[in-house]
């Protein structure tokens, strides 16, 4: 019998003292705990690199999915409740629409800042003090791709959190009845 399924009181207390307590009060495996603690920040850094670093392959979609994968790893290891504490429902909804607002808003700002002289999504007309090609490049890299990444990351994390719930704790009908 593995250490994880045994829930003796003494071991549970020891796990709590070290901060290695799972979702249902059991002690987590040391290896899983350590690997997750190392991998989550690394994969989040890699997600930002894929999102913004235009030198290599990738872009907003791929970077956002990698970031969502790090949040899903956090939720699988530390429990769904801990994962929801990191990304609460309200912030999740706000962020997933914020990314789209950034993308469409940059396109609208090109029109608004020039009083209608430029077209929608005409990045080259945006009043930045650099030359034409670099203006397009900066807006694509730091506004459009980041907007796509925020939307994709939060939408995929929200898909996981909305689908991950325990039937044996609440019951299927009990959870839905009083919505």
């Amino acid at each position: 019998m593995s250490k994880r399924t045994v829930s003796k009181k003494g071991e549970r207390e020891a796990g709590k003292k070290e901060g290695r307590e799972g979702a249902d009060g059991e002690e987590r495996d040391v290896i899983v705990d350590t690997v997750a603690r190392v991998m989550i920040p690394l994969s989040q850094m890699f997600a930002l690199y894929v999102m913004i670093g235009t030198e290599g392959a990738g872009g907003g979609f791929q970077g956002g999915v990698i970031f969502a994968a790090s949040l899903i790893l956090l939720a699988t290891v530390f429990g769904v409740k801990k994962g929801r504490d990191v990304l609460p429902e309200g912030e999740n909804a706000i962020l997933s629409s914020l990314g789209l607002y950034i993308y469409a808003g940059v396109g609208l700002l090109c029109m608004v800042l020039l009083w209608g002289a430029a077209e929608y999504l005409n990045y080259g007309a945006f009043p930045l003090p650099v030359e034409y090609a670099l203006r397009r490049g900066y807006l694509v890299t730091y506004a459009v791709e980041v907007g796509i990444g925020i939307t994709v990351a939060t939408v995929f994390a929200s898909l996981f959190f909305d689908l991950a719930w325990r039937e044996d704790v609440l019951g299927r009908d009990e959870g839905r009845r009083d919505l």
């Binding site: 235009t54 030198e55 290599g56 392959a57 872009g59 907003g60 993308y103 469409a104 396109g107 999504l121 990045y123 090609a133 670099l134 203006r135 397009r136 490049g137 900066y138 694509v140 890299t141 459009v144 791709e145 796509i148």
Partner: peptide, 20 residues
Amino acid sequence: CGVPNMVTAVLADYRGYDTL
């Protein structure tokens, strides 16, 4: 486009409406 990656430029600049 000022972007060294061809795929990024096509996705977000040349085909911006599509990606939106």
